[in-house]
Design a protein around this nucleic acid. Structure first.
Lengths: 139, 139
DNA sequence: ACAATAATTGCAACATTGTTGCATTTGATA
DNA sequence: TATCAAATGCAACAATGTTGCAATTATTGT
């Protein structure tokens, strides 16, 4: 956790933001996490050590996304999940969501854009691909 | 619209449900629609001709999805969109969402399931694929 | 170390989307 | 046409997210 805190602080300073307790704590939680987690889950983890206003959490997550330090995943249940941008996440990738435990993990690749034919006049910007099923623990 | 109303009524009766004014009206709206539309958009169309309680609309849409007469699309903005199940929609398919006007359309295919390697122990049930970009009107 | 200042935070209030319980109304059927 | 389960409307609630504004805090220059 110590390591994550210092890593988090470094990441934040490198992007010209103030290294506040909240930002560091939130980013550290995401750094420690394997999976994409929800606002709610982050809030629960924070409440144990560093109670923070709901609104501040929303705004901080927004800021971290803007600065490209984390990314948002939309997994079909109207709830955003957040995950640190490690190297593999700088390019687009797919996600897997377990239909039993709702856990989300990041996968490696996306299909080639050029293999997909859109109606004429349409311009493709981004692909969002989510696999759903059972994870190893829930199978 | 006459045609859509009778079609809607037929579809509902074939599935052993009561052909109520609300169900017929809602399904007729969806039959007339090219794109997947939101609860809100349906509500607005209804308000002009057939004011219906918000809750009834939610429950009717749920019922139509259960009966497989329509399907739900989740397009990353926490809002469900609904679209009639025409033949091509009985199997899974992808969607396109315009990032400017938020309109959603249905595309034809999905990538082959077997081309995708999940971590061991994971079981794939469903693929959700959304393309984002600009539609012809917004380009 | 300290004051100044701009960025960040907390609070209260609101907005949107969706759900639940229960009494009332309505469509299908005998 | 009477009956009765199914469908609806209403009120209240829940979850997630947003906005305005005053108070606090991190950084910077001295």
């Amino acid at each position: 956790m110590m390591t994550h805190n210092t890593t988090a602080e470094d990441m934040i300073r490198h992007h010209g933001g103030r290294a506040t307790v909240g930002r560091i704590g939130i980013l550290a939680i995401l750094l420690a996490e394997q999976h994409a987690i929800t606002h709610r889950e982050i809030e629960q983890q924070l409440s144990e050590t560093l109670p923070l206003d709901r609104v501040t959490l929303y705004r901080t997550l927004e800021w971290l996304v803007e600065k490209n330090l984390i990314h948002k995943v939309s997994s079909g249940d109207r709830v955003w999940r957040y995950h640190v941008n490690r190297e593999m996440h700088t390019h687009q990738h797919a996600h897997f969501k377990c239909t039993r435990c709702a856990q989300v993990i990041c996968l490696d690749d996306l299909p080639e854009k050029r293999n997909w034919q859109l109606p004429t006049g349409y311009r493709l910007q981004e692909i969002e691909l989510t696999f759903k099923g059972l994870c190893a623990a829930c199978c």
